[in-house]
Design a protein around this nucleic acid. Sequence first.
DNA 1: ATGGCTGCAGGATGCAGA
Length: 260
Amino acid sequence: MRIATWNINGVKARIDTAAKWLSTASPDIVFLQETKSADEAFPAATFEDLGYNVARHGQKGFNGVAIFSKLPLEDVRFSLPGDEGDTQARFAEALVSVQGGAIRLGSLYLPNGNPVDSDKFSYKLAWFDRLHDWAVSHLATEETFVLGGDFNVIPASIDARFPDNWTDDALCRAESRAAWRRLVNLGLTDALRTTTNAPGHYTFWDYQAGAWQKNNGIRIDHFLLSPQAADRLKSVSIDKRVRGWDKPSDHVPLIVDLEG
DNA sequence: ATGGCTGCAGGATGCAGA
């Protein structure tokens, strides 16, 4: 089973690019972030015609997450527990049934958190705490789960081409990295880091200042796997090609292949 | 570089992103 996650930066601006990418990568399941579309304006039919069931949860103009699946989606939910007052569309989860059981899927768009002296940063850290609690509760049931998305965290210096540029940024502040480690240290597997300890594996290049041409990238899109999911991991890849296409998102897809 | 782009809503340009 192939699962991909991609911050698409506007699903309506990326319909043609997304259709092209889906046909070349052939994922069974896709997590999207930053769809920037209200649900009624989401171009679901385009993706249903490509064979996907579509679960989407968005807002006008910003945020927004989705899960596409060639298998039926069950138990679809769109809110991360822990703050009834949070109206931002940043989380979608669902179950798919496969041979040998179910897999829980979580597509997430973790808050950016800049500027760090604002309530945006405290919102990011609170959101991280809620995600931690979500993981604790699902680890307790020994479910197979796959959390993927734009975590807006550069886990370590090797995850940035120019780490010194990001020292005081919300993406790599000590509090953000501590929250990331606290989540991973529950027993989750950072999928990409099972394949390599090398620098140079990025998922985002800014539109500005020729970041792509200079390979000024960062790794902020991740898959975290529960132990049962990690046991099934076959391969991980970053589909960098997509950043060089016309009208690209500033993020590229990250892909995991699981047994079964 | 003064985020130097980009998408969105809307019908100009401000907001949001990382």
